[in-house]
Design a protein around this nucleic acid. Structure first.
Length: 438
DNA sequence: TCTGGGGTCCTATGTCAA
DNA sequence: TCTGTTGACATAGGACCC
């Protein structure tokens, strides 16, 4: 999908169409998740600190992501893909590989192109959004093709033309070459894909190590045999929070770790999983990041066990100077629990006095509750004015623009944040009747 | 106002047992 | 019995992806 989050917001909010839209964390430490193509003109792009984006595009619309909404759209698109083939490998909410051969949907180049054209039409009809398609003989080439096709296009990389097409491209085009590897290669005088091929396999392995070297050399020669794999099993479950202000108080750090452990276990249990290895992640005031892990004798999904392990791990970490991020994860997953009876009994004890209570005893960060209740971009309904979305809030006021996906751009009105006529609403379908509402 | 959140994979190093 | 090799596992860190 093209600029997925931003496009979904523009489709949902007529007044934002054709305008610079930036979706991401709005806090002081937020980063850009997606920028609309109009915003990219100003140099705004994914992973950029929000503060920098605001300097570059001060007049853009800034919205928090609405994952439930995007997920609903994503499921519609994945449904279309699964109609083409049972072999669909989602990479994220807005991207997937499809093995057309396995689906019998396409045998030759022309039939494949036809499938791609039809798919793009279906995506538009069902979601109202544009998606781009890359058709090629391997995952790597299909991915590169789809990048070249964006926005709103289709690219076929014909067999036999792969090497010539890849040759002049920058090394960063290849999957697995990020900033660090890119720098590494550049220092060795390698800037294009054909120069990777020219350097030879031994040289690459010497430069980048065994796995990466062999892999990259193969990619540069357009050799990629990786199969499309549907239903890959999760290998870890984790949660993490970056705090608006560094936490210095060791007691508070401990409490946050307990909260994260509970959240992590909730996700773990929700997925019907348990795990053996508990991981604590700490990012300090200076952005240095360290992890500590502990492996239990058997898998657990017991909140008390995970909390205690996380607390032990925290004991071995120096947090003087403050922490900006904390995280708790579980890996070594199994889909069954093999917990001994002592732990089960201990759980019932500890659960009685949960962390949430203790947490309330500590004074909360002084943050405006209105920001929580009326997050920018979220849908609302007013008794008199109907459906709209929060354009901004603060100082006891909330500003709402009243419009729907199929209306003209709407008008703005401002209310008190405690106005009883105003309530939170579910997103409306982008195409009438197409979005199953929760 | 510098740098999210949720993942995967790879590498290096240490330890232990066969 | 001593020494060396090998493999599995645990741990920590880093690169990368969307």
């Amino acid at each position: 999908m093209d600029a997925f989050f931003a496009s979904a917001e523009q489709a949902s909010k007529p007044s934002l169409r054709g305008k610079a839209v930036v979706v991401g964390g709005l806090g002081p430490r937020g980063v850009v998740a997606t920028a609309s193509y109009e915003a990219r003109v100003f140099g705004v792009h994914s992973a950029m600190p929000m503060a920098q984006a605001r300097r570059l595009a001060p007049n853009a619309a800034y919205l928090v992501p609405r994952f439930a909404f995007y997920r609903a759209i994503s499921e519609q698109v994945m449904g279309l893909l699964r109609a083409l083939s049972p072999l669909v490998e989602p990479l994220s909410l807005d991207e997937a590989f499809v093995d057309l051969e396995a689906g019998g949907a396409a045998g030759d180049e022309e039939s494949a192109r036809l499938v791609g054209v039809r798919l793009r039409g279906d995506i538009r009809a069902v979601t109202g959004l544009t998606g781009s398609v890359g058709l090629a003989a391997s995952k790597m080439l299909a991915k590169i093709g789809s990048e070249q096709a964006k926005p709103d296009g289709l690219v076929v990389i014909e067999p036999g033309t792969e090497r010539a097409m890849l040759g002049p491209l920058p090394v960063r085009t290849l999957p697995g070459v990020g900033p660090a590897t890119g720098d590494h290669l550049r220092r060795a005088g390698i800037t294009t894909v054909e120069e990777i091929a020219g350097a030879g396999e031994d040289e690459l392995v010497r430069l980048l190590g065994k796995a990466h070297g062999h892999g990259l050399y193969a990619m540069a020669l357009a050799r990629d045999e990786r199969p499309v794999v549907a239903e890959r099993e999760a290998k870890s479950v984790s949660v993490e929070d970056t705090y608006d202000v560094d936490i210095h108080d060791r007691t508070r750090v401990g409490l946050e770790v307990q909260r994260l452990a509970d959240r992590c276990v909730r996700r773990l249990r929700g997925a019907g999983l348990s795990g053996r290895t508990i991981v604590l992640k700490v990012r300090r005031y200076d952005f240095s990041t360290l992890t500590r892990s502990e492996t239990l004798r058997g898998p657990t999904d017991d909140p008390a066990v995970v909390r205690e392990a996380a607390a032990r791990l925290l004991d071995s970490v120096d947090t003087t100077g403050g922490v900006r991020l904390l995280g708790v994860g579980v890996s070594g997953l199994a889909d069954y629990t093999q917990e001994d009876l002592f732990a089960q009994a201990a759980e019932e004890q500890v659960d009685a006095g949960s962390v949430e209570e203790a947490e309330d005893a500590i004074e909360a960060e002084p943050e405006a509750p209105v920001e929580r209740r009326w997050p920018s971009g979220h849908d609302v309904r007013h008794v008199r004015y109907g459906h709209g979305w929060v354009q901004g809030s603060g100082l006891g006021r909330v500003t709402v623009r009243f419009e729907t996906p199929d209306s003209d751009p709407g008008r703005v009105r401002t209310f008190r944040t405690d106005d009883p006529d105003l309530e939170v609403a579910e997103p409306l379908p982008l195409v009438p009747g197409s979005l199953a509402q929760a």
